[in-house]
Structures are given as C-alpha cells and as structure tokens.
Design a protein around this nucleic acid. Structure first.
Length: 790
DNA sequence: GCAAGGTC
C-alpha cells in the first residue's frame, strides 16, 4: 500500500497540470481536505492591525510640552522624570550630535539636570542597518551625523526631527538591529542528548538570551536608551518584526526602565511614507509579539526533542545510518513529505490505454484539427463503434461558429513566492539564490522589500512615477514611455493577498545594467518587466470556435488571433500559445473531412516536483515563510532526505521493494556536504515508470526533487504508525499557523497555544516511541533495502 | 550536534 498515505493536503496546480498533461488522466484526485482548525479559518487579520488607538498617542507625552519653542525657555519641564534616571555615562556620540544640531540647548549628559531642556530625546531602532540609514536620511533631510558602533554593520545616526504633536522637536539617534536580537535555548543541564530523555524538553525551562553575535548591538541600544526618554521601533510591519520590536524594547528597558515605547508603521522607505509614519506612531502589538514567542518556543521544543529522538534511535541501526544527524523540524518534515508524496504518485502510477477520434480538415491552405467532444474513452470497442458510425456519415456538418473577443490576463503584482517560482523556471536560479540577489538589489535601493505576500498595490501609490523611472532603459524604456506618454497606463490587477507590511515587489529606481552583476541583472530585469506588465493592459484577441457534427459525434476546433499583445511585449516569460487562425466555416455547411482517424494513447505519470512546485505547495500549506521556504528546501538536501536531478533525467530514488538497485544511501560516505552528491550517483532508471523518460533530457536547467531512501523511510515510517497525525504531513504546521493568527486576533493566547500544541506533540512523541519498531522497519526496508523490513 | 525566524 505504498503511496496511500494518511490524509490529504492542499495540492497546488497539480490537478490542473495533470489534467492538462499530454496524455494523462488523473483517476485518484487528491484534493483539499484540510482538517478544520479549532479556531476556524477566518482570514480577517485586519482587526489587530489598527488596534493601536491613536487616542493613546497624546497621553504618553502629554507631560512634555508639545510646544515647539526651541528657544523658548518657558516650556514645561520634561516631567519625564523618567529620563532623570539616565546615568551620566551616556554616549558621547549622542551629545556630540545633539549639541551640534540643536543650538546647544540640550547638552549631554545634562538632560536630566537641565529643566529647560525641551528637546525630547528619541531613540529609533530599525530592523536592519539599511532601513536605519534610509529612515535617518528622510527624517533628517540628509542632515545627520554618523557614528560607528562596536558592531561593524551598525551605525548610529544623530539628527533633529519634529515628530509633530506630542513629541515635538526631538534629538534623535537612529540605529538598528540585524533581525532577531535574542534566541531561545535550554539550560546547560539539558545539553546531553540522552538524559534527561529528549521528551523532558517538552516542559524544560527555556531561557531567552542575547544571540552572541548581537551582544554589541544590544549594548548599543541599552546605552543609547539611558539618555533617551522615548524609544521608537522601526521594524518591519509583520509578526516577526513586531517580536523583534519587543526584543529591542527589552534591551532598551535594561538601560532605562522608564523609557516610553512607540512603534512606527511603514511598509516602504519612500520619503513621504516615512515622514507620515513618524508622525503617526502606534504601540507595539503585544498579541503579535506573543504569537511569535509561542511559535519560537514550540519550534525549539519539538525540533530538539524529535531530532534527538530520531538520531538516538536510528543511528543504532548502524551501517549508512550510523553517523547521521536525523533532524526533525516543523517545516523540514512537511517539505520532505511533499517530495515523498509525489515520488510515490509517480512510482505507483499505472498507465492506462485510451482511444480517441481525431478529425482534420484542410481549407484555405490551413490544417484544422477538430478535437472530439468526448475527448477519449478507455474502452476500445466503444470507440471503434463510434468511429465507424462517423465514417458511415461521410460528411461533417458545421453546427456552430462563434467569434468572440478574448483576452489573456496580465500577471498579478509580484510576491516573494512568485518571484522564487519564476526564478527557478526562467532565470536558472534556485529560490534561495533569487532571494539572495533580490536582497542585494533591495539593499542597494533598486527594488522594494523582496519579502512580501502582498499582490495588490495600494491605491495611493504613485505607480506612474515608478514607470517613468524606467524611461532610460534601452530594453523596456520605450515601452515604459508609451505607458505614460501614450496614455496606455493601466492600474495593476488587485490580488487577494495583503500582508499589511510590504507592497508587492517593484522597482524603486532605475539601475543601469552596468551597475549590476549578471545575477542581479536577471532578477532586476524580471522585477521591472513584471512591474511594467502589471501597469500595462491585458493582451487581447479574437477567439473562434467551430463545432461540427460528424455522425452522431461532436467535434470542435478553437482558434485565437492575437490583436493586441500589450503586456506581452514587455513580458517575455509568457506567451499566448495556440495562436492560430481558423479558415471560414459557415453554420449548416457540409464537408468531407480530409482525415478522420481513431487514435490510441496511454496515460502518463505526473512529473516529479520542481522547486517551483515545492515552493507553491509550501506556500499553500503554510510551511515556512516567504523568506525561509528556500532554506528549508536546502536543509532537507543537506540532511540527505532529498536530492535534485535534472528534469526528465530522474529515476526512482529511495528504494521501492522491487527496486533492486541499491538506493542512494543516506550517509553513504558520510558526506555531510550539501547532500547533493547523490545526484551523480543516480542513473536514469525509470523506477516504476516503465522506462520511457529515463536518462534523456534535463536540458532546460530545471531540477526535480526526489527523496533519498532515508527520506522515504522517515516519512513512510511515521505514516505507518497507528496514530492519526503523521509528522510528515503539513497539518500540524498549518494548524500552528492558524493558531498564531488566532493569537494575533485575540481569539487565543500564547498560553493556550502552548498548552494545546505541546500536549499534541508530546502525545505524538510517546506514540512514536511505542511504535519505534515501525520506524526502524521502514529504515531497514528502504535504506538497507532489506525486504519488508522485518 | 538539534528548530525556525530574522538579517549580513
């Protein structure tokens, strides 16, 4: 019963792709059958977003005079006696900057002793140095001072800025972290992999410590906080950003436990947007912080517990498994599960013969192919009878001729997932590489933030301005100009997704090809072309449908003439195929077909997953984030759970019973490397595909994923256990995701989340221990190629 | 030695 796996998951594009596959027929459909979350699946995530009442805004600083008076001595004394705590050790960098820029009104470190100081001292912290710099640039109008910190990537920018009512004129220091500041870990007493036993990690204490690499950054924030009365968090507006904000807050509170904490909400670093974010501060959203904290804790516990469990127990089997690290991760396993699932669907595919009738008629020098309305039947005798009836009729009759306008829709605005998929298809890059390059382009200011789920542009965005920036280009400049000056600009389509944090990926400024390396050029070109395509118009054409009756059977021909290519002119990644003109036919006319034949075919198996398929599956099932999906894919290769092979060149991977070639052993040669060694070892065996595809192609540079014998053993081992939820299935992670949303929306709490999830995984752990033999048997069967593993 | 999530 291999390949008949518990449960179903969201299959992306599989059905449509299979059914459109040359000669394939899908008999057993896997369909969306996601277990219902106890929290429901409401997608309304807006509610929390605006939960920071702006009314709150005035209160915090009401003790400060909102008065601007830089020079008026008569202002309220900064009642933030809070700041008076600040020690005289405050950074000299700050005082240097502030004395310079504020008419010596606020000499450091005398802020606490000079009642007349009316300049609020504000500490701003961004999620990354590039944002700190960009924001500092905008807020200061370019008038800022730069100071190095002991972290080589991070700088402190000092300037003055008027935050408007509330904060007013302020001395600002802007700095950054580099992502998360802290990491969760177990106490040293849990260091051993054997005792206390791994399941103790489900309730072991967890400590949050500053990541060693980030110590200098944390100290910088702590020090700056001492001399600041207000902290403004400038992290990305997504869940993780909110949590990073809380880490920044905690670091700042260490330096100054009375510092007031505010948050700026911004989704791009365009000047006007930043300025308005600075004047509309909100509070940190503790719910989002909690949701992420819950996720961090759960992933740590189950990742460590199951990794130790698997490694401890399976290494004992010796041989190729003797020294492996067999990790479990809440994203790794479902990702592996997708690869294994598809592998078995290919392997277990049984081709079926089918028959069909085809009609061809030549007219006006054109050969028109008519397809059978019944498409094909799996009964040869029946088709033979129908075919003979057709022939007896001799003449076909035109029943219907219809001409109607049709169009091919322009693409949706670009998301991260789509960028990765397109890059693996058209740019000869892995998703990981595409992201690295996109990140570089982003840091250089050429494109917007590349990690976004949003596929709709904000109504207020000045898209025309962005199109205009592309005028200078020799390749698409004329197209861009035509959009604006030729009046052919069209508002992009509105997708259904909005992460409320970042806009779709789009070009920010023009980058001449000479300033980019080859990889950057490819990605930048794609981003620009996609953007221009979005701002263009759908391609338009005229479709002709001709239906004819032949005997008692109906046949149809379809033709399209492209009238306006529009976006296709700038977007070579798509084409409008099937572009063919049909000769004239008139309703009622009769003709004797040039050819009428009965054809025979065989259904063919689906293909193995490409990286684009895998990313799409992960996306649809909530496995990983747009930023990490490519990493999980790398990780399961590094762990030797899967390998990639050139498309069409793949063969069976992890052993099937009848597979008498030794499987590409996990750990053979113990290579930790990147796990790709397996590829070279693979011949082009067709597994159960009955030959055919083996060996041949792979010329298009697209890779396919197949599991190793170890990968198959792990997934099958868990699948064969008696309990309902398999670790290799995406349900658990999907549920985690939904429960995080529930926390964000106030429908659940961190405590509830942890209680229920930890209980669930602990149960799975104990059941897995009880049925360890099932898992071992699967390893013997697949990895050691030892019969049925008994 | 182990996760996933940020970012460099």
């Amino acid at each position: 019963m291999e390949g008949t796996r518990k449960g179903l998951y969201v299959q992306v594009g599989v059905l449509s792709r299979l059914s459109s596959h040359r000669d394939s027929v899908v008999r057993a459909h896997h369909i969306y059958n996601l277990k219902k979350s106890r929290f429901g699946v409401s997608s309304n995530i807006q509610s929390h977003v605006a939960n920071c009442s702006s009314a709150l805004f005035f209160f915090f600083f009401s003790t400060h005079s909102p008065s601007l008076a830089k020079s008026t001595a008569k202002t309220t004394k900064p009642t933030s006696t809070k700041t008076t705590k600040s020690s005289p050790t405050s950074s000299t960098k700050i005082s240097k900057a502030s004395t310079k820029t504020s008419s010596a009104k606020t000499e450091q470190p005398t802020i606490d002793t000079k009642p007349n100081n009316i300049m609020t001292r504000v500490l701003c912290v961004a999620e990354k140095p590039s944002i700190a710099k960009a924001v500092a640039q905008h807020l200061s109008g370019g008038q800022y001072q730069t100071a190095n910190t002991s972290d080589k990537y991070t700088k402190n920018y000092s300037f003055t800025f008027n935050f408007g009512p509330g904060l007013g004129d302020s001395n600002v220091t802007m700095t950054a972290v580099r992502g998360h500041l802290t990491t969760a870990e177990f106490p040293p007493t849990y260091k051993s992999w054997s005792h206390p036993p791994p399941d103790s990690l489900f309730d072991a204490p967890i400590t949050t410590v500053t990541t060693p690499d980030c110590k200098a950054i944390a100290r910088n924030i702590e020090t700056l906080a001492r001399s600041s009365s207000v902290l403004i968090v400038w992290t990305d507006c997504d869940r993780e950003g909110e949590h990073i904000g809380s880490e920044i807050r905690d670091a700042a509170l260490k330096g100054n436990r009375n510092i007031q904490v505010r948050r700026a909400r911004f989704s791009n670093v365009e000047r006007g947007h930043i300025l308005s974010a600075a004047r509309r501060l909100v509070a940190l959203d503790q719910r989002q912080v909690d949701a992420v904290a819950a996720r961090i804790e759960l992933d740590l516990r189950i990742g460590f517990a199951f990794t130790r469990f698997l490694t401890n127990n399976l290494r004992g089997l010796g041989g190729p498994m003797g020294e492996l690290m067999i990790s479990y991760g809440s994203c790794q396993f479902p990702t592996l599960g997708f690869v294994v699932d598809r592998y078995f669907r290919v392997k277990n595919f049984v081709p079926e013969a089918f028959w069909s009738i085809k009609l061809v008629h030549e007219r006006e020098g054109m050969k028109v192919s008519f397809g059978w309305a019944r498409n094909r039947l799996f009964d040869r005798a029946a088709v033979t009878i129908l075919y003979e009836r057709c022939l007896r009729a001799r003449e076909a009759v035109v029943k219907k001729v219809q001409e109607k306008p049709t169009k091919k829709w322009k693409p949706l605005p670009l998301t991260t997932v789509e960028l990765q998929k397109m890059a693996t298809r058209f740019l000869r890059m892995t998703g990981q590489q595409a992201m690295t390059v996109a990140e570089k382009l982003y840091n250089k200011g050429f494109i917007s933030y590349p990690r976004t789920e949003t596929d709709r542009f904000d109504k207020g965005m000045n898209l025309r301005g962005l199109v205009e920036k592309q005028f200078p280009d020799g390749r698409w400049g004329a197209f861009a100009r035509e959009l604006i000056e030729g009046g052919r600009f069209n508002q992009p389509r509105q997708g259904k997704n909005d992460d409320k944090a970042h806009p779709p990926i789009h070009p920010i400024t023009y980058a001449a090809p000479t300033v980019l390396d080859e990889q950057e050029r490819k990605v930048y070109e794609f981003v620009v072309r996609r953007f221009l395509a979005c701002c263009s118009d759908d391609a338009k054409g005229m479709a002709t449908d001709v239906e004819v009756g032949y005997g008692e059977e109906m046949f149809a021909a379809h033709g399209v003439i492209v009238l306006e290519r529009n976006y296709l002119d700038v977007y070579p990644y798509e084409n409008w195929t099937g572009t063919a003109m049909l000769p004239k036919f008139e309703v009622g006319e009769r003709f004797e077909p040039t050819e009428a034949m009965m054809t025979e075919g065989k259904t063919s198996p689906p293909s193995y997953l490409t990286e684009a398929d895998l990313i799409a599956l992960m996306d649809a099932n909530g496995i990983g984030t747009d930023a990490t999906m490519a990493e999980h894919i790398e990780k399961i290769q590094e762990r030797q759970y899967v390998v990639t092979v050139p498309r069409g060149g793949g063969g069976g991977a992890g052993g099937a019973e009848e597979d008498n070639e030794p499987p590409p052993a996990a750990g053979r040669g113990r290579g930790r490397g990147r796990g790709r060694g397996g590829r070279a070892a693979r011949g082009g065996r067709g597994g159960a595909r009955g030959g055919g595809a083996g060996g041949g192609g792979g010329g298009d540079g697209v890779k396919e994923f197949i599991p190793t014998s170890l990968g198959v053993a792990l997934i099958m081992g868990f699948d064969r256990m008696s309990f309902e939820i398999s670790l290799g299935k995406p349900f658990l992670r999907k549920e985690t995701e939904l429960m995080m949303k529930a926390i964000c929306e106030g429908r659940s709490t961190k405590q509830e989340f942890l209680q229920s999830n930890i209980h669930q995984y602990r149960t799975v752990y104990h059941q897995s221990s009880a049925e360890l033999n099932t898992l071992k048997a699967a390893c013997r069967q697949y990895v050691f190629n030892n019969g049925n593993g008994q």
